[in-house]
């Protein structure tokens, strides 16, 4: 592609180039230093909790891993439910914007979705408590009475509606903007020729999307989902406000006893924490750090592996 520029002699470095390249190097290294500083802080602060004697940890946990396990479970469980809700929804919205909606409407809708990203999470939390939870509670009661045989929906039903499902719905709404934006961009990048070829072969619009757009966008959809997952894993305030937490590990969606998430637990317990409890909370933060890192690495791996088969190249 770049045949014309091969074999060029080394270009003269101008002052502007130097300044610019060193400032980008500086910016790049600052992010690494920051990350290293946060990790070091967490590790140092975590040590007292990791070696704590039984009886000193919060919740009478016998060791740190017993303490943190329900929180890790809750974090991943809530984020997964949120993802299950948000992924199809964001793909749908993105497809509507990129392929179905009239242009003006698509633009407006795009802006509205972007605005959703600007709403602070505490507002989503308040909306969850004041509007969503009371609104959903009757549906939950119905589900438990009529579908209680299905393990996820077994009772007793929460009287306030502040269940992990409500929290996950709030999380899903919060993940939507970033996921939709990425999906939309990727869908719009589908080569025009692929689409037209599919249509020319007699495909309907849905078949065209199925055969040309979605395969092309698969890697993009996965990275969108992973970014959404990252957002869901770290979300604090909305969960702290909406969820009714307890010290449990279960898969029930509609009861009052829900596993808490790491970030929300830190927000809830930090103000009144003293001694080893503070270290235990920071150590749980370290665990969240590691979990998020793992999720992102897996996402990178999946995206890189899928790229080759996506038909994009």
């Amino acid at each position: 592609m770049t045949a014309g520029t091969t074999g060029a002699t080394k270009a003269k470095l101008r002052l502007g180039d130097r300044i610019f390249s060193s400032s980008t190097i500086l910016a790049g290294s600052i992010i690494l230093i920051l990350l290293a500083a946060v990790a070091a802080f967490l590790v140092v602060q975590s040590i007292p909790a990791l070696v704590a004697k039984p009886g000193t940890l919060p919740n009478n946990a016998s060791n740190f891993w017993v303490y943190v396990w329900p929180l890790v479970f809750g974090t991943i469980w809530a984020a997964l439910i949120a993802l299950v809700i948000a992924t199809p929804l964001s793909i749908g919205i993105a497809l509507f914007i990129s392929h179905y909606a009239p242009r003006r409407l698509a633009q407006t809708l795009g802006y509205i979705i972007d605005l959703l990203a600007a709403v602070p999470s505490v507002v989503f939390g308040l909306w969850g408590i004041v509007v969503l939870a009371p609104f959903l509670q009757p549906f939950y009661t119905w589900l438990v009475t009529n579908m209680g045989w299905f393990p996820l929906f077994s009772g007793p039903v929460s009287g306030t509606g502040r269940t992990i499902l409500t929290a996950a719905i709030v999380l899903a709404v919060m993940c939507l903007p970033i996921m939709t934006a990425i999906c939309r961009e990727v869908f719009l990048q589908t080569p025009r020729l692929h689409e037209e070829a599919a249509l020319a072969l007699g495909a309907t619009r849905w078949e065209m999307i199925k055969t040309a757009v979605l395969p092309f966008a698969r890697a993009g959809i996965i990275s969108a989902a992973m970014l959404g997952l990252g957002r869901a894993l770290g979300e604090t305030m909305a969960i702290a406000l909406v969820l009714s937490p307890a010290l449990v590990v279960n898969f029930f969606l509609l009861t009052s006893q829900n596993p808490n998430t790491i970030a929300a637990n830190i927000a809830l317990q930090f103000p009144e924490a003293t001694g080893v409890t503070v270290n235990a909370l920071l150590a749980s933060g370290l665990v969240l750090f590691v979990v998020t890192l793992a999720v992102n690495s897996v996402a990178r791996y999946v995206v890189n592996r899928r790229k080759a088969f996506s038909g994009a190249n």
Binding site: S244, A246, L268
Partner: peptide, 11 residues
Amino acid sequence: TYPYPVGDAAK
């Protein structure tokens, strides 16, 4: 900390 696994919790 509330000691029993009963009821709803709120912040």
